[in-house]
Design a protein around this nucleic acid. Structure first.
Lengths: 316, 316
DNA sequence: GGTTAGCATCGAAACGATTCGATCGAATCG
DNA sequence: CGATTCGATCGAATCGTTTCGATGCTAACC
């Protein structure tokens, strides 16, 4: 850049201002600097140097766990998309992180933790020590981080009431690994069905749900409704039940969570719809606030019961 | 770090060596430096400064287009996962990029271009001017970039032969937007069926495929087999055909591409299996080579025909 | 005992910008 | 016409490391 400045006949500082536009530079001077740059093949300020000087990298990490499982559930995408869009508008990039701390040496301005189901994270101590802002999505409560959450409890209770209204009295539930959302939702469910049976826990994955629920169905379920923790799980239960000749919702009502589209199912699932895009935007806003030093408040987003065709009156 | 060095009674350079381990430092000295750091609450070298000095950021960009569509097709994940794993092992992070050049100000050591279906990219000129290595996946051929590709042509031809062997003579195809893979595959198909009809183009999305193929099915297809460009598209065709009472493969044979799992379909698709994880690894290796300045060769990965239950003898 | 190796350590020069405070002119105002 | 203001420009300090070449010191060798 010094060469560019010299060629343009201005000082180094003026050249810098011409590129960054941080302070007023006369149009003529800017023009001169830019053409000198073009002539010398200078492609603009080195991002690394700019980063060092400014103390920020423009990169935000997002911990989502193993990628192949993280994005298998379609519920992950709208949120990721929203986060990315808001950050992009501010010139920030989104860096995918695994679960480990292999990225400790990378310069991150903030980190989003979105591995539902994992309650511990070795890398958190490092981040905290280095004063990297952390935004946690539906996650464990770590000191110093900002939390974005949804109304797990209320949603689960609303869904349970719906089933109770339909006459269901014996209800089973497919769970996720023990985690903050799981605990909240289970508590919500038990407000209405204190004795709900637990089929077992599995990831939010179609095949996993099928494998989990198959034996339970064979064994004679003893429940008229199954409450799942994601629409993908619910779809697995529907498919597996049908494979055994059961009618949904005639013989068995099935409910999901999330409110994502399942176009390959000829049935709209009864589910608890969460505002995925809005959640992503809330996360991104929290990140921006934390980076800029603004105070942040935790966010709790509302959910909404959507009644579809997968639940019906309890078989008497 | 200067304070740490002073506290430990060593020079700044020695302290640096103690942290980076780039040159021999006596165990005693290292220990002294580390404990001084712990005592002063120093959390290790500032990544931004290290980056400036070393001229690299440790971040690799990957352009995949809008995230919500990029990962909707399950074929994208195994590759992304493989890329990420290999890069992570080298301490490199993966940054998601949209299609624009909003990330021009970010310090990227290399960029992977994986937006099949887009043939132009404004940001490429910038990257080339800044000598950022670019690795292109199944994409347009830009000067200076390294290419990772699969055998589109051979795969399509093998699939076409399979259909021909089954007695099919009138074949239709659902395409992607005009692009390198699309052109190659169509050429491969036409080696066997020069007159194959084109139903239309759509993204690799279940609903999109259904909407595209619906009217065509209603209209009386005049083909006994449909060749799709992804398994997701093929699944859409299967579902839509069945909705019209057509039997697959009895009335209509349907073939896909990619070889991903479709657990919600009670049918294994006949498809061309591409080595997704190996493709990802090849991409990552190319990135590492380009970053380290090693010469790279373009890669062409083999594909394999997998015959499933979605294709059968042509209805006579 | 003198030379040579070799290891640990150190000083100083980059890396390439941004930014603060000061300076210099020209325009505005009374 | 002199004082004030404001915008444009400049100098110099700074961001926090890594790394190159040099230096000192010990140990091994003949």
């Amino acid at each position: 850049m010094a060469d560019v400045a010299a060629t343009a006949g201005v000082s180094l500082s003026t050249a810098s201002l011409a590129f960054s536009g941080n302070k007023p530079v006369s149009a003529a001077t800017r023009e001169r600097v830019l053409s000198a740059a073009a002539q010398l093949g200078y492609t603009g300020p080195n991002p690394l140097a700019r980063n060092l000087r400014q103390g920020r990298s423009g990169v935000v990490g997002i911990a989502v766990g193993p990628l192949s499982t993280a994005f298998r559930d379609p519920a992950a995408l709208p949120m990721l998309d929203a986060v990315s869009q808001v950050l992009e508008r501010e010139g920030l990039g989104l860096l995918l992180m695994g679960e480990g701390d292999e990225h400790a040496a990378l310069p991150l301005d903030a980190v989003i933790y979105d591995i539902c189901g994992r309650e511990t994270w070795d890398a958190y101590a490092d981040l905290a020590a280095r004063d990297v802002p952390v935004v946690v999505v539906e996650g464990p409560s770590w000191p110093g981080s900002t939390f974005i959450d949804i109304e797990h409890h209320a949603g689960a209770t609303a869904l349970a009431r719906h089933l109770h209204d339909l006459g269901h009295r014996r209800v089973a539930t497919v769970t996720l690994a023990p985690s903050h959302p799981q605990r909240e939702r289970e508590a919500g469910l038990r407000e209405v069905f204190p004795d709900a049976a637990v089929v077992g826990a599995c990831e939010s994955d179609l095949t996993a749900a099928q494998e989990l629920v198959g034996p339970w169905l064979d064994h004679g379920p003893g429940a008229t409704a199954v409450v799942c923790q994601s629409d993908v799980q619910a779809a697995g239960v529907v498919l597996e039940a049908r494979r055994r000749g059961l009618d949904v919702p005639g013989d068995l009502s099935v409910a999901g969570f999330d409110g994502v589209a399942t176009p390959w199912l000829d049935l709209e699932l009864t589910t608890v719809v969460q505002p995925l895009a809005e959640k992503g935007r809330a996360v991104a806003r929290a990140v921006l606030d934390r980076i800029s030093g603004t105070d942040t408040a935790d966010v709790l987003l509302p959910v909404e019961l959507r009644v579809g065709g997968s639940t019906g009156p309890a078989r008497s």
